[in-house]
Amino acid sequence: MKQAIRLPSPARIAVFAAAVVLLPSALACVGHSQIAQRTKALEALMADHHDQFYACAPKALARAEVAIARARHESSRGRPFPAKAAIEEAEAAVREGWKGSGDTICMPDADGDGIPDRDDKCPTLAEDFDSFQDEDGCPDPDNDGDGVKDGDDQCPIAPGTPANRGCPVKDSDADGVMDPDDSCPTVPGPRINRGCPIQDGDKDGVSDDVDRCPTEAGPVENSGCPYALIAITEDQIQVKQKVFFQTGKAAIKKESFELLNEVAQAILDHPKFKIRIEGHTDTVGKPKVNQKLSQARADAVRMYLVGQGVGPDRLQAAGMGDEVPLDDNSTEAGRAVNRRVEFHILQK
């Protein structure tokens, strides 16, 4: 009995042929993908532990890196089997390296300060761990660089002076006088007064160092001293005493010199002052004579003041006679008031 041979249909032949042609390509594609994944995983592992491997298993690390490079190349050329062999070689090297570098103590640390040499800027000098730049691995014997060793430095992270035990010299009151030299470190004052403020004991606005009368209030113009015998008002230098002359004459009595000296000083203290000196009489005697006498007395006062250093151009002298009385000329007291010298301020 003869059996009929069953030939495959054309469709089956086509499927078989496609499988034969496409299967290697599909397998190669899967192989490439796997190799890429394994390469990536290996590289990640080596990146994480590179320094450990480098220090403890340098040859294994080198072999693994070369094998990975070869695997990449073979894979890029579409040769999955050599690529696979290379990646397996790399994996074996990594395994070997892992055994050799599992102990982290293997990281070299020449100075034994716990900072591996690769991160240690001073691999042969141990870090002093004084909370100042401890991460660089270098000891810092003088943190603030002020020349005072940290052990002796009371302010190790603030530059100071040896005299101040390494602490910065402060100027607490910012008066330009450093605290050690400042007798009043919290109150500003000039250097000339050792950093203390200059007092104004009499509160006259003239500080004691320039106040000729530091315990008596006086105007600035008089260097802080009060005018004892005069007062300066808006339009006059008022005298608190009378200017005395010899009877019927223009000669000034000695007793009035002190008063006139102070008037001269006041005029000198106010350089812009221009003064009119007025002479006044009572009504005793003839008006013409009185006018002449008052002019002569005003002139006499002017000359005296010029003699005290007042510029003649700043002084005018006017005889007013008996024409401007202040009081009653019928009484002796009134006449005494009317006999007078006045100093009028023409210009300030």
């Binding site: 590179h50 690390l61 070369v66 070299p108």
Partner: peptide, 15 residues
């Protein structure tokens, strides 16, 4: 007896 990586902390190779 262990080597020290170069200053940049990286060796050559495929990285």
């Amino acid at each position: 007896g262990k080597a020290v990586p170069p200053a940049d902390g990286r060796s050559g190779g495929t990285r």
